[in-house]
């Protein structure tokens, strides 16, 4: 990482490829720093912005651990969704603020990935109001899901659960990670200034609390438009 054309600079640049250095980083340096500078889990989902165009087309990466990750358990999750697919699509349509949504089974997780407009809680709440029974069927297959059934009577708890299982979205501007990590520790914007060279370390440490993350807010082909605006322009009704 050194730009200096000295022997020491060249030596430092070769370190990440050396086996002993990798071993040291993984088993000594990282645990030491995790002890010295632990990073609280960063909240999932998109962050609220004062800029209206940033508050539409937001990404949800809901990662739900399967109660039974065996082949049979996965098939049960598929069944829960397949039997309700009309309700799910109808429900998303009625919520009115959803651009896309899809389900993915990845390893031992069921993922619901969607793009929606506006407030996350409203999106989830309206979805429950429309098709609460569908979520009940899905949550029955999810680790920790039983406590939230029926979702219609556990609206707040369910929204919080979904928020906790929505992936942290690493900021599009890398240095914003400092701000988010400070916020999570209750340090305000007046806190100490961070040295840019510590950014890689802070990212490494964050992976301990947020092992799965979303890289940025994602690509948008048409930023700043709501689903209803696009539907109106296309003349398909909203």
């Amino acid at each position: 990482m050194s730009n200096e054309e000295s022997w020491f600079g060249r030596f430092v640049d070769t370190l990440p490829t050396k086996g002993w250095f990798k071993f040291l980083s993984k088993y000594v340096v990282t645990p030491y720093w995790l002890w010295k500078d632990p990073k609280p889990k960063l909240p999932g989902g998109p962050r609220v912005s004062s800029q209206p165009s940033d508050n539409v087309q937001r990404m949800m990466n809901l990662i739900m651990p399967l109660k039974d990750p065996s082949e049979i358990g996965k098939a049960r999750a598929v069944m829960a969704i397949a039997q309700n697919v009309d309700e799910i699509f109808g429900g998303l349509d009625n919520v009115g603020t959803v651009h896309f949504a899809r389900f993915v089974i990845l390893g031992d997780k069921l993922c619901m990935i969607s793009v929606y407009d506006g407030d996350f809680s409203n999106y989830i709440r309206d979805f429950i109001v429309t098709v609460g029974s569908v979520f009940d069927a899905i949550m029955a297959e999810i680790e920790g899901g039983s406590a939230l059934i029926p979702t219609e009577q556990n609206v707040e708890a369910f929204i919080e659960w979904v928020h906790e299982h929505d992936l942290f979205q690493a900021p599009d501007f890398p240095t914003e990670l400092f701000t988010l990590q400070d916020q999570a520790k209750g340090i305000g914007p007046d806190g100490p200034v961070h040295d840019l060279s510590t950014l890689p370390r802070n990212l490494v440490l964050q992976f301990h609390s947020n092992p799965d993350i979303s890289l940025g807010g994602g690509y948008r082909a048409y930023p700043g438009f709501s689903a209803a605006q696009i539907r109106e322009k296309l003349g398909v009704g909203w």
Partner: peptide, 17 residues
Amino acid sequence: YDWLNLGLQHPDITGSN
């Protein structure tokens, strides 16, 4: 959030406060 400051409820006002 959704109605007063984003105007999400109607495409003709979305993006206005």
